[in-house]
Design a binder for these strands. Sequence first.
DNA 1: AATACCATCAACCGCCGCGGC
DNA 2: AGCCGCGGCGGTTGATGGTAT
Length: 287
Amino acid sequence: MGRPPCHDKDGMKKGPWTPEEDIILVSYIQEHGPGNWKAVPTKTGLMRCSKSCRLRWTNYLRPGIKRGNFTEQEEKQIINLQALLGNRWAAIASYLPERTDNDVKNYWNTHLKKKLRMLEAGTTSRPASHRSVIKGQWERCLQTDIAMAKRALREALSYNTIASRPSSSMTTTTYASSAENISRLLDGWKRSSSTTSPVNTGTITTTISQESATTTTLNCVMSLEAQAAPLLRLESWLLDESFGHGDEENFLEIMTVDDDRDVDPYKEDDEEEQEDEEQQEEMDDED
DNA sequence: AATACCATCAACCGCCGCGGC
DNA sequence: AGCCGCGGCGGTTGATGGTAT
């Protein structure tokens, strides 16, 4: 037997969240910021486990979440990214800032999987090159790292921009009656505080440490980008609407064109393969 | 109108990685 | 080095609403 589930603890409630619970959670996060989820149930009195609180916040209450139908552009992005990254929903969702990983995963499972299956049934499926799949793994990991570093940088930079603005007044006395409106209510709070800073303190210490983090992140991004020019081309290609699902050859072309640096660990294999092919051709000619 | 079936999505569960001790 | 707890992730479940019969 493994560790018992967190909801097995005495009195822990499970199931759908009520608007009242949402308000309690949002109020707490307004005051303390997201994070330290372990403390949330005890500090708020919510009969929910820390995991449940975090999930509710990240998937539903967090400001900036877009709900409702996915656009065609988003759909294509998900399909392309899923083809490249596999079921790494968090990584895929990082390309769709307004969508949560849970949303992307649900949308994939309920809509896209079915859609693709129908499409595949309707067309003669081209067998994917095994080599290109393996080859893609290294690029996937590196690209995900770059995306995450970029996001971190953007967040750090936006924090600095936000911090320099005069803070707007927070509305803490009025709450929406429905859970759906709560995240909208938080917009004002979001603008006046940081996503990375626990509270809207605005202290010099906080600002300095944020700037330091920004510099570190920037260095990290520059270093990664220097190694991964092909992946940046990949990013623009991914976002290109003209791209069709399963274009492994296009992917490989983009990864190799105009790139003199040997950053591809699989390059040697390719060269060996090419040599083998040339030798084979020579032998054929001799025959 | 009643029932069965299907689709959707919020929430749960278990596992894993990481950091602190 | 090993253990423990926390946070994050992906797979899965189950409640609910919609549609077909």
